[in-house]
Design a protein around this nucleic acid. Structure first.
Lengths: 231, 231
DNA sequence: CCTAATAATTAGGTATACCTAAATCGATAA
DNA sequence: TTATCGATTTAGGTATACCTAATTATTAGG
């Protein structure tokens, strides 16, 4: 019994499985496959099956699991996943606002600390930050009650034609990409105009009032969420 | 291989063993017995032996261990122990100063987080706090280079007669005791006068200029370090 | 100097969270 | 309908960090 740290039986690993399922199942709460979890978490598919069976068999089941049919979060699993996600985004905001971290470094630190902070820590940084609802990447922060407002943003990679948008959020998973986007002025709230799209070359976009365009790969476009421009 | 988190092969458990050895071996760097480690860490003596053998056999040994003769930290072990101790005390100071934690709650949170913060986090909170050298309990914070200034304070429990002192530090290990001490005005920097001592009943002391005395058990006296009053 | 008590170690086992290799399931294409 | 292929699961192992019970060292007393 090494983990006397979590009396709630939620280890760091369990937390990460729950977060991954939350993220991959999307707002529509689709069933999530073992393979996509294995990819997302970087572990062997067999390990996924093992863990899902364990999570489903717990006294308070954290997932709903059927062999060969993927998983869904149970209410308890969803609750915990949202709590960890809240931790993650509060910590990111805190590192960025209070400790002056460069934006591309907040994710990695939050990814570790999210599992270990207490209720008190959560509450104190939230208070210090004025109970923020959005993190520095533009993602919304679940409430203490486990509610998360979903904006109906779309991925830049789903945009087919030209048009004007406001940048909703930017993925935090790749620090290098994030640093490059920052350098181009791509950050939540900025306006973005799609000039041209080609299946092969990706996108040609411009930011703000500038007429200078630059290229974005499809991969980069997969990390940028947009809202229709209100203008 | 669950802990890809620590490429340096220092798990949370290893960190805790190193810290315990550092603390128990004292400024004189006495050899530390398995039993005292088992007590301090709350694990079975057999587990101690196992871990010490592992730490001593590592490519870069973290302890010097001889069967039946106790352990000492190796240079590498001492370096890591002081790094973790620095983390602990910086985090405590940070929680107290920046996040307005009650003094008796900082220890437990720091105990968890000390293992997981990055170099950057350490550096940022140190900067934010103005590179403090003393934590809120009066303990000195090791430098980034792994040096720790030792003041030659004495334990209240070692005081035999009457006398006047300045409180150097207060143990953080028991939140309840710490809360009671705080309520009595016992905190680093305050002056303390020992009025009476009896082997059975403990101490009768007064704080500051007050003539009001109160009682301290021997147990409480074991958590209070004193410096001679300079007056 | 020997023995009894105490301290420390060895032996053997548990749970977590991974892994690889082998087996099996299920969806589709002939 | 069935053969096939990719997805998934089962079987069997590893390492960490604990545990208890049994054994062996050390040390202090008679």
């Amino acid at each position: 019994m090494p983990a006397r740290r979590r009396p709630n039986s939620n280890s760091e690993s369990v937390d990460n499985y729950l977060k991954a399922i939350l993220s991959l199942s999307g707002p529509e709460r689709r069933r999530v496959t073992s393979t996509s979890l294995a990819d997302h978490l970087g572990v062997a598919p067999a390990s996924i099956t093992n863990m899902l069976q364990k999570l489903a068999a717990a006294t308070v089941p954290l997932v709903e699991y059927e062999r060969h049919r993927g998983v869904l979060l149970s209410p308890a699993g969803r609750r915990r996943a949202l709590e960890v996600l809240r931790h993650h985004r509060l910590i990111e905001t805190f590192l960025y606002e209070i400790l002056d971290y460069p934006i591309e470094e907040v994710h990695e630190e939050a990814e570790r600390l999210e599992h270990f902070i207490s209720e008190r820590f959560e509450e104190r940084i939230a208070a210090k930050l004025g109970h923020p609802r959005i993190d520095p990447h533009g993602h919304s922060i679940p409430t203490m009650e486990g509610e998360m407002t979903e904006r109906n943003s779309i991925l830049l990679s789903e945009v087919l034609g030209e048009g004007s948008f406001v940048i909703d959020s930017v993925s935090d998973r790749d620090p290098g990409a994030l640093r490059r986007l920052k350098a181009s002025g791509i950050r939540p709230g900025a306006s973005l105009r799609v000039r041209k799209r080609s299946a092969a070359a990706g996108y040609s976009v411009s930011i703000g009032r500038s007429s200078r365009t630059f290229a974005l790969s499809h991969e980069a476009a997969d990390g940028i969420r947009l809202l229709p421009s209100v203008k």
